[in-house]
């Protein structure tokens, strides 16, 4: 049993690296996802993950399959699109989702064009599906760094971020922090998506961010419960996904995201807070 679960990690260094990288990502991305979900911006992160592509592609064109180049490119493109969409939202009548959709579509098309200009099918597959089983030292350090920065930043911005989510108008009347906090949060989203795309690829980078957050909604009532639950779900998914991909020779990124997806479906049915199965029973109501 122990061998079944831990064997591959004991035996192979690359599996241990993959696990460490995924755990780092599991600590940073899910809390960001919790806030995205609560702000009804879940799909926004999906749009952002596409917006990262042209930056990564430019990095790839310049330096080949090099981590620093693609990371910097991805960060730059993501932040640029987030900032541009934010400015358009705050200065015109266009809502944030629409302006983001416009920019990410432009960005995605440009990215696909750039990648197909040079590079083989395999390179494209790497970018789209990630290379979690080939994480080298710089990649691991990047993931660890992103997790550290994210957790410290969330701790620092926690209070205004919650206020901005609950009552943005109130925050505007008492403080000017709302705008900067919003942009800082978008920066964290982009950073975690770039981290996720090292491991899971651009298409699935959102997976470890959102699925654990949404799953946690079925288990915890408030933020102090949602965030740790989401982290735990992400770590379990990472472990299960990596093990399954090793045993059954499956691609790793999809295996991890599918593991998170399975946990979501189980929670959807049996989660103590709003799970569907509990609807079958009608508990006796209380006296008052």
């Amino acid at each position: 049993m122990i061998d079944l679960l831990f064997g591959p990690f004991i035996e192979f260094g690359f599996m241990r690296r993959a696990l460490a990288g995924c755990f780092a990502l599991s600590l940073s991305a899910p809390p960001v996802g919790v806030f995205l979900m609560l702000r009804r911006m879940s799909l926004m992160s999906d749009a952002m993950s596409h917006a990262i592509l042209p930056g990564a592609a430019v990095g790839f064109l310049v330096a080949g399959l090099s981590l620093p180049a693609m990371t910097i490119g991805g960060l730059a493109a993501g932040l640029f699109v987030a900032l541009l969409a934010g400015i358009v939202t705050r200065t015109t009548a266009i809502k944030e989702d629409a302006s983001l959709a416009a920019f990410y579509l432009i960005s995605l098309a440009a990215g696909v064009l750039l990648v197909s200009l040079r590079g083989s099918q395999i390179d494209l597959l790497h970018i789209l599906f990630g290379t979690v089983l080939a994480l080298d030292d710089p990649a691991l350090m990047l993931l660890g760094g992103i997790a550290t920065v994210t957790l410290f930043a969330l701790a620092a911005l926690y209070r205004p971020l919650v206020m901005e989510c609950v009552d943005p108008l109130f925050l505007r009347t008492v403080s000017r922090a709302g705008g900067p906090v919003h942009y800082a949060f978008l920066g964290l989203v982009v950073m975690n998506l770039v981290g996720g795309f090292q491991a899971l690829g651009t298409l699935l980078a959102v997976g470890l961010m959102l699925l654990p957050a949404i799953t946690a909604r079925f288990w915890a009532a408030d933020l102090s419960g949602l965030i740790p639950t989401a982290m735990a779900v992400a770590m379990v998914s990472s472990f299960a996904g990596l093990t399954a991909s090793y045993r059954a020779d499956l691609p790793t990124g999809p295996a991890i995201v599918l593991a998170a997806g399975s946990l979501y479906l189980v929670s959807l049915l049996f989660g103590p807070r709003g799970g569907l199965v509990w609807r079958l029973f009608r508990p006796r109501h209380l006296e008052g």
Binding site: L38, V162, V166, D167, L169, A221, D222, L223
Partner: peptide, 14 residues
């Protein structure tokens, strides 16, 4: 207000 009452926040925190 623009208050999101679905946000899991306690009355005391509000």
């Amino acid at each position: 207000g623009e208050i999101d009452r679905g946000f899991p926040l306690s009355v005391l925190d509000l």
